[in-house]
């Protein structure tokens, strides 16, 4: 049986001058590289910023145990599935989102990553699936989703290593064109690059910004 190994949580941490230059260029050319998140468009839920004191104690305790130097922002989400809580912070220049249910039980952790940080085998498989579905596609945002026992997740976030027992998935926002129509989609891929979920993103109305 193949032995699973620890994986680095941020295999490509750090940002060189050349990368900074290209990010800067991309921002001004609107090339789409500098688009950290499109979560705002997946509005099946209502998200409100809340104070730490309004969050269930067990959720606050887990975040406190991470001993973060970074500022943590708390959000409450209301959707058809009920209420959930989310802690967001930036570490290694990546957004981390830790989600809890209505009574503060840990659900999952999501970390923004770059495409190169997805293992090659999974990356090839993801592109293979997307090529089957679209004439042209582009990955707009990738999050590594970690689920498993709270203790293991906490250890992974502190040590910045993914232990073998955790379940890793990739939540990816894809801009896809097929039959002449372009839309945004949210995919959930397994660690091996197999599709687990797919949903079309409904873009929020922008009329007030255009006219």
């Amino acid at each position: 049986m193949a032995r699973k190994q620890y994986r680095n949580l941020y295999p490509l941490s750090g940002c060189g001058c050349a990368q900074l230059f290209f990010l800067f260029l991309a921002f001004f050319l609107n090339g789409g590289i500098f688009e950290p998140s499109l979560c705002a468009q997946v509005k099946f839920e209502k998200e409100t910023r809340i104070k730490r004191t309004d969050v269930p104690q067990s959720a606050v305790r887990m975040i406190d145990l991470l001993e973060l130097d970074e500022k943590v922002r708390w959000f409450m989400e209301k959707s058809e599935n009920g209420v959930s809580f989310e802690a967001k912070y930036k570490r290694q220049n990546r957004l981390h989102s830790i989600e809890f249910d209505s009574i503060g039980r840990f659900q999952d952790a999501e970390i923004d990553i770059r495409e190169r940080e997805v293992p090659e085998e999974a990356r090839l498989q993801i592109h293979h699936h997307l090529k089957m579905e679209f004439d042209h596609h582009r990955l707009r945002k990738i999050q590594r989703q970690l689920t498993g026992p709270e203790e293991d997740i906490r250890r992974a976030l502190v040590k910045e290593m993914i232990p073998p027992g955790l379940t890793v998935r990739y939540e990816i926002i894809v801009k896809g064109r097929s039959s002449g129509e372009t839309h945004l989609y949210e995919y959930l891929f397994s660690d091996s690059g197999e599709i687990e979920r797919r949903a079309r993103i409904i873009l929020r109305n922008t009329d007030h910004l255009i006219y």
Binding site: N30, E35, P36, S37, L38, C39, A40, Q41, L95, L203, T206, L209, I210
Partner: peptide, 15 residues
């Protein structure tokens, strides 16, 4: 001609 870009916490529009 108009173009709207979506960022995590804001939207930017060019016209």
């Amino acid at each position: 001609f108009s173009l709207v870009r979506n960022y995590r916490t804001f939207r930017l529009a060019h016209r």
